[in-house]
Design a protein around this nucleic acid. Sequence first.
DNA 1: GCATGATCATGC
DNA 2: GCATGATCATGC
Length: 480
Amino acid sequence: MQGTQYIDKEAILKRAQEAIGIPLKDIDTTGRLSTGKGAIGTVIEESWYGYTPNSESEPDFPEAGVELKVTPYLRTAHGVRAKERLVCNIINYMEEYKNTFKTSAFWHKCNTMLLMSYEHLYDVPKGEYTIDAAILFSFPEEDLVIIENDWNVIMNKVRNGLAHELSEADTLYLAACTKGATSASVREQPFSRIAAKQRAYSLKSSYMTHILNTYIFGTAQNESIIKDWRTLSGTTFEHYLEKKLSPFYGMTIDQLRKRFGVETSAKNIVDILLAKMLGLSGRISQTEEFQKAGIVPKTVRLLPNGYSKESMSFPNFDFCELCEQSWEESDFYRILSETKFMFVVFQSERTNDSMEMVSSFSVAAGKKQIAPEGVTGFKFKRIVFWNMPAQDLEEARRVWERTVSTIKEGVVLKKTAYGMSNNLPKQTESRVAHVRPHGRDSRDVLPLPDGRMMTKQCFWLNGGYIAKQVVDRSHDAQKG
DNA sequence: GCATGATCATGC
DNA sequence: GCATGATCATGC
């Protein structure tokens, strides 16, 4: 009975487009809408196409080879963006590793998708929602080379008995996201006795946002780093970037500035130089590939002793909001578990670039010029793609939990000679992360749950931790 | 010499 | 005007 009227792509798409603008309550013939999550997709399957929802390995319309996906988006001040990742089929660790990408369960089920988009509106009943657009989507070649590599990254972890260490941030567009009733949902893996979290293939929300803005609600054209997808055959995006940038390794900021005729000494000098080195007219973070993968570039400066000069900050948190969230729904967890970082590493090799010399120099030079003397002696060492290993994510969780419990119990604030001290997690308490102020100045405050005001704070990754990650990842790269 | 608190500066 | 990335500067 399943999808019998809809055996070709045209008929399926035509039917989808007929749904545009109809309130869901008028589509829903079974009263399913009042049930829980995922219901909207089910309503379309059941009431609009008249087939029984299935979660099997075949696409929803097997004859046509089309998988139906009903997916929410948000309208923000910056335009349309995907509300969430697009979750596909659950990964069967025990079987999938035997395949190639083209014989995989993912490709079999999801190579062609019918995407139906609706706007998620807070405080509006689901019955009032409407489908706003419907398209048939097949992956373009330039995305497929990256997605195929993503699939290989995921499967190689399974083949190495590391399914329990999978992370959504391991990959660029196609990811392995957790899926299950609870975070305790686990399943067996073929090459290790350790139970692994149940995960499903998913397209990252950054990738879905790009699809929305390119194929569904517009024709966004971001500058591409890769001009021809064939460039990536036999290599990866990460290696390609390294190869493009490696000719500049060893050069100081000053040398790079002269080389490209860059006059400015602004704090974003590294961003400007990175664009020059790659021949981009805009910023690297705005390129199509970085946007789709949600890659975040970060500058890391290592001192001669190998330490990172600075810790790495994250967005401020709202004290009250923080106390109402679970770890899994917290911003800190989401950033750490989903983000691929590109560390742009600079190293000082001269002993007189040590902290106190830099400080005294900047005092001597006058407080106005900040960036130039701070970075001049640093040489471009390399780029490192990094995402937080599963083990360290657990440590970040401990820091987060201690932060929440301290705020709930009431932060102890003490006035000191230099500023206001507090008892939130210090850098010395964890090898991974700590909490520190991050506002415009000390008067930039937010309320605590008990009503007192406190300087805006955020989570930081320890400078020492960052430095160690850079070194470890470099060794991995040499081995691999 | 490092940790902690504070602040600057750019982009949106 | 604010969020965010980057960096300064004092005190222990």
